[in-house]
Simulated assay, not measured.
Amino acid sequence: MPQITVDYSATMAPAFDQAAFAQALHTAVVEIAAAKPEACKTLFRRAEFTAFGYEDPEEERHAIVHVTLGLLAGRTDETKAKLTETVLELLREHVEDDGFTLHASAEIRDLDPSYRKYES
């Protein structure tokens, strides 16, 4: 915990500093949600094809990024809101303006009580 997943359009890959974003995000999760630094894990998933509205996806004028944070239950709604707002700010800082419109979103999910992890 936390389990963080970042889904993003391939269009934005050259403009997205993933390493710096992950480091800043982990710091924010520790500060805002009281996570342990060594528990922060982020998986980036690049989507080769994304579509926006009725526009031609081949023109690559839009990029989509969605960040999902899975946390153990117990955080207040205020903490979750602060964290999602911070995620959006960090995206603004770590995605360069590269000629596309960026559609960014973030959400916090409580991990199910059945959540377990394995390390080896």
Rank of each mutant, 00 (worst) to 15 (best):
D56H: 01
E48A: 09
P57W: 12
R46I: 01
A63Y: 00
F52M: 14
E55T: 11
V67H: 06
L69H: 02
H66E: 05
E55M: 00
A33C: 13
R46N: 02
I32G: 05
T50P: 01
A47Q: 14
L43H: 13
L69W: 00
I64Q: 06
Y54K: 11
K41H: 13
L71K: 03
A34T: 13
F52W: 15
A47T: 02
V67R: 03
E60H: 11
K36S: 13
F49M: 00
T50V: 09
P57N: 10
C40I: 01
E55W: 01
E38F: 05
E59P: 06
A35C: 12
T68N: 09
R45E: 02
G70T: 03
A51E: 10
F44C: 05
R46S: 09
E60A: 14
G53W: 07
F44L: 07
H66S: 07
A63C: 03
E59V: 11
E60W: 04
I64S: 03
A73N: 09
F49E: 01
A33P: 04
K41Y: 14
F44W: 08
I64V: 08
D56P: 07
A39N: 11
E60R: 15
E60S: 06
T42D: 08
V67A: 03
D56K: 12
E58A: 15
G53T: 05
I32P: 08
G53I: 06
H62N: 11
L72A: 11
E60I: 03
L69N: 08
A39Y: 07
R61D: 07
H66M: 00
C40D: 08
F49K: 05
C40T: 13
A39D: 14
P37L: 10
E59K: 15
T50L: 04
A34Y: 00
T50C: 12
F49S: 05
A51Y: 03
T50I: 05
A34L: 04
I64H: 11
Y54T: 04
P37F: 04
K41V: 12
E60V: 01
C40H: 07
R61K: 14
G53N: 06
L72M: 14
F44V: 04
E55P: 00
A34V: 01
T42S: 08
G70Q: 04
A33E: 05
P37I: 06
H62G: 01
E38P: 03
L69K: 06
T42H: 12
I32H: 10
L69V: 12
P57H: 08
V67D: 07
A35T: 06
H62W: 04
A63L: 00
A33Y: 04
F44R: 07
E59D: 11
H62I: 00
E59C: 03
K41Q: 12
H66Q: 10
H62Q: 09
E38N: 14
E55C: 02
G70C: 08
L71T: 06
L43F: 09
E58N: 07
K41C: 09
F52C: 09
A47C: 13
K36L: 03
